[in-house]
Design a protein around this nucleic acid. Structure first.
Length: 356
DNA sequence: AATCCGGTCAACCGCGCATTG
DNA sequence: TCAATGCGCGGTTGACCGGAT
């Protein structure tokens, strides 16, 4: 089936937007909302296709867009989330408030990717090209990697839930209900709010049965009906405000098949103050910038995967890649993430401005 | 001063998914 | 059930800019 063009291309303008066009688009959306993108250009008096209008709005004109240099914590978040999610820029963007997926993608391709490659880290796999950081011969590190893999699956499932909630919110927007208090209208970018918080609030009131092939989300609440039988891994949000990650024992060799129970506060990064305290004590400028680092899943990542204080790990001397690689292989409880961050840190000197 | 070259980023393109009729 | 439609995502392009030669 041939795909019909998104709009009649003949006579439509392409290329850079003029200030006049921007003004027209901005004025129209402010007054009417975007509604149907396809119909918008005609209504707004623009000789553009709807797709072009949508892109211009979401990537440039949207009032909540944060422009300018990426902060250190934003960079860290991008690196970590990219390692988990790959090139899922929109998913990554939900963890970086007011940044667009396009901006993040560009920044990754022009800055971070090259920087990681320069440091000897494969920007695709996020593993050291020499393999020393991955600790593949290190059982504990392998377990950490396995945990991360499962958490990535969880994140994928969560993103599916976000998408579903966003769709549901379209319906609920007309008749808001208490359980949809945090559902975002579709014309509000997901990045405009705290995504994890909103999503989990939404989850509390809605039974969501995700059909992820590897992970499922279930909700034990008054609204939950038939719960699916867990096939592999499972995340459960209970009425007692606990989030339980159920990991299959056969996928994590040697681990007990038990529930890892995180308080909802952990998951919702409401414990960020504690992390800030961890970093505030560090005098290294780079680390002080890490106060409050991470967002949403990234935050949980640190809480769960780090077996000791992250600042202790990151605050160690940085004398180059080799030493860090050796450290990573020598210390059993240093996981891959600390290794990556360590190496990033080693690229920085107190004299040089942090990154870029 | 002119040209070259690499970096940056806004914008486009094509595809996939969800929805609709 | 299936084709048509709309939207969003990720990859890519190309214009622009600043520094180097």
């Amino acid at each position: 089936m041939g795909r019909s063009p998104c709009c009649e291309k003949i006579g439509l303008k392409k290329g850079p937007w003029t200030p006049e066009e921007d003004q027209k688009l901005l004025a129209f959306i402010e007054e009417h909302g975007h509604g149907s993108w396809r119909a918008l250009p005609a209504k707004a008096g623009l000789q553009r296709c709807g797709k072009s209008c949508r892109l211009r709005w979401t990537n440039y004109l949207r009032p909540d867009i944060k422009r300018g240099k990426f902060s250190l914590q934003e960079e860290q978040t991008i690196i970590q989330l990219h390692a988990l999610l790959g090139n899922r820029w929109s998913a990554i963007a939900t963890h970086l408030p007011n940044r667009t997926d396009n901006e993040i993608k560009n920044y990754w391709n022009t800055h971070l990717k090259k920087r990681l490659a320069k440091m000897g880290i494969d920007p695709v796999t996020h593993k050291s090209l020499s393999g020393t950081l991955t600790g593949t011969t290190n059982n504990k590190s392998a377990k950490a990697a396995a945990s991360l893999s499962h958490m990535a699956q969880w994140e994928s499932a969560r993103l599916e839930a976000e998408a579903r909630l966003a769709r549901e919110s379209k319906i609920r927007t007309a008749t808001p209900t208490p359980t949809a208090l945090h559902a975002q209208p579709t014309n509000v970018p997901a990045s405009a709010a705290s995504p994890c918080l909103d999503v989990l609030h939404g989850w509390q009131g809605a039974k969501i049965d995700l059909e992820s092939p590897t992970s499922t989300l279930t909700f034990t609440g008054s609204n939950s009906g038939m719960l699916p039988t867990p096939r592999t891994n499972r995340l459960e949000v209970s009425e007692s405000n606990s989030v339980m990650w159920h990991q299959r024992s056969d996928e994590l060799e040697g681990e007990e098949n038990d529930w890892q129970i995180f308080s909802k506060h952990q998951v919702l990064e409401l414990d960020s103050k504690e992390r800030e305290d961890d970093f505030i004590g560090c005098e290294e400028p780079w680390f002080s910038g890490m106060a409050g680092v991470g967002s949403g899943f990234t935050s949980m990542l640190f809480d769960v995967s780090n077996e000791h204080d992250a600042s202790e790990c990151w605050g160690e001397s940085n004398n180059g890649h080799t030493e860090h690689s050796n450290q990573a292989s020598d210390e059993e409880d240093k996981n891959y993430w600390n290794g990556v961050l360590d190496m990033v840190n080693s690229e920085l000197t107190p004299q040089s401005p942090p990154l870029v």
